[in-house]
Design a protein around this nucleic acid. Structure first.
Length: 485
RNA sequence: GCCCCCAUCGUCCAGCGGCCUAGGACGCCGGCCUUUCACGCCGGAAACACGGGUUCAAAUCCCGUUGGGGGUGCCA
């Protein structure tokens, strides 16, 4: 077998659908695995869709995923000469004919003839002349069958009598995708057509056109299993989050997305699912693709994404999280401690300092903000439940806050470990004095962050800086004092 | 209605006639770790849709049933 030539041929719809992304990925994997080529072809039947905006909506997500192509983008709208020539050829040899019947006309004829709704070749012998609003239909054979050889599904045969004479040129003179598809795939020497299962039923039409046009052996087909929702319905624009760009915006990593998508309809034989793309390329092949529909499971995507996030170095993590941080940099006395002179600290360096602790707590990059906002913000907003539980009802909370504030005033905030030791020792000492367990971390956490749960406190405290920490402790104490008579 | 596709734990995959008392992962449940929340670690429940064949032997091959899905456009 010579090296394969595949194509990814999306219609410009204004965004890239996750299903299309999966199709692009499988084409790409196949091409890369076999050292073949991938052609990008934009199926803009309507030339009005050939705008930069529509094209970018396809190209940018592909680039984001890291799926490159060797040729193109070609545009279907640029190839109308070829399409028209093929159309003429089909007309000349009698494989196609004109038809001026509207949908209503057809229905009426069916009703009158007592036939089920369908085209039934009504205009085959009416010798309709071409003119405005007149379409061209392809004459399908009445007998025999048309066979699609599919790598994923084996031999699929369609009885020709079940095929209607379909439209290959619209009333406005434009070519439909069946004809364009047959011509373009042939002209571009496509060896493998890898696409969604929803197109399996249209394949015999393309095959019939190819045959009528005298093309030699058809490409190898591979119809990939559909991506479905939890109710097993095809993913749709209306009902689901299908825009790849939305996933990017929510903090999914391209590596994770690609890895997950590769696992829908395919699995590595060694059962190691989360792995670098190079290994996936090596392992991937079309004959291992499963024919059954696959549920696009956001929970699993999250797991894979979180796994990639955990694998980042602090620098990588801070860099990829940066676009998702909405707070601006802060200006405080900061972690450089000892000196009380204010110095600027960037949100990015905060993320980098806390990377490990954040990484193990998130599945998406847009969650980073929620873990550090209290460090970057100037105002603490108290969660009411947390305040009640740890401060108002917390055992000896007032004493804890006072003692912690007092001792922290003597520290230089250069060591997170020491901050921890100080706060904990206050708890230990008060426990002894009261004869019951007194927790010191909880009230400090709430006083400083406003919340009951969060990152390990000590490094954030250091980043918050001495002045700000003491000030928040003080504020919490007075808030507590004023809340009870 | 007609045509086509599909069918292993809740989900995604492994399995391509004997290695299967069916394996991994996510999720779920329980435990350990932990003075927050997590991570991590250990353990557990959980599937070959059903019925016929073929075969010494079937989750694996064939047929049927049932169930799900897709298509049936002057969308792609």
């Amino acid at each position: 077998m010579t090296t394969p030539r595949v194509r990814f041929a999306p219609a410009p719809t204004g965004f890239l659908h996750v299903g299309s992304a999966r199709t692009a990925l499988f084409n790409w994997l196949y091409a890369r695995h076999h050292g073949g080529q991938m052609v990008l072809r934009i199926e803009d039947t309507d030339a009005a869709l050939k705008t930069q905006q529509y094209v970018d909506a396809i190209i940018e997500p592909l680039r984001w995923l890291g799926l490159d192509w060797d040729e193109g983008p070609h545009f279907q709208s640029d190839r109308s000469q070829m399409h028209q020539a093929a159309l003429r050829q089909l007309l000349d040899c009698g494989a196609a004919y004109f038809c001026d019947l509207t949908r209503d006309d057809i229905e009426q004829r069916c009703k009158q003839a007592g036939l089920p709704v369908g085209y039934h070749g009504w205009s085959r012998d009416r010798n309709v002349a071409d003119g405005p609003g007149v379409v061209v239909r392809f004459r399908c054979p009445d007998l025999g069958e048309t066979v699609v050889n599919d790598v994923v599904r084996g031999r699929v045969s369609f009885p020709n009598e079940s095929l209607e004479d379909f439209v290959i040129r619209r009333g406005d003179g434009s070519i439909t995708f069946h004809l364009a598809n047959a011509v373009d795939d042939h002209d571009m020497a496509i060896s493998h057509v890898i696409r969604g299962e929803d197109l399996l039923n249209t394949t015999p039409r393309v095959l019939l056109i190819r045959e009528a046009l005298g093309y030699s052996s058809p490409p190898v087909y591979a119809h990939l299993p559909l991506l479905v929702d939890d109710k097993r319905r095809k993913l749709s624009k209306r009902r689901h989050d299908v825009s790849l760009d939305d996933y990017r915006r929510r903090g999914y990593l391209p590596e994770a997305m690609v890895n997950y998508l590769a696992l829908l309809g395919w699995g590595p034989p060694d059962e190691i699912e989360i792995r670098p793309i190079d290994e996936i390329i090596k392992l991937f092949d079309l004959d291992a693709v499963k024919p059954a529909p696959a549920f696009f499971d956001p929970v699993r995507l999250d797991h894979i994404n979180s796994s990639y996030i955990k694998s980042f170095t602090p620098q990588q993590f801070a860099a990829s999280a940066d676009p998702f941080i909405t707070s601006s940099d802060i200006n405080r006395d900061s972690s450089v401690a000892a000196s009380s002179s204010p110095s600027s600290i960037s949100s990015r360096s905060v993320v980098e300092s806390l990377a490990g602790d954040i990484q193990q707590r998130i599945a998406r990059l847009d969650e980073v903000q929620g873990w550090i906002d209290w460090i970057l913000s100037d105002e603490v907003s108290y969660d009411d439940k947390a305040w009640q539980k740890s401060i108002v009802k917390g055992r000896a909370a007032a004493e804890v806050l006072e003692a912690v504030e007092e001792r922290l005033a003597d520290d230089d905030f250069t060591s997170a470990e020491r901050l921890e030791a100080i706060v904990m020792s206050v708890g230990d000492e008060l426990s002894e004095r009261h004869g019951v367990r007194v927790r010191s971390q909880a009230p400090v956490r709430v006083a400083v962050s406003g919340r009951a749960a969060g990152l390990p406190l000590w490094m954030p405290l250091r980043l918050l800086g001495k002045d700000e920490t003491l000030s928040r402790l003080r504020k919490a104490r007075s808030r507590l004092a004023s809340s009870r008579p």
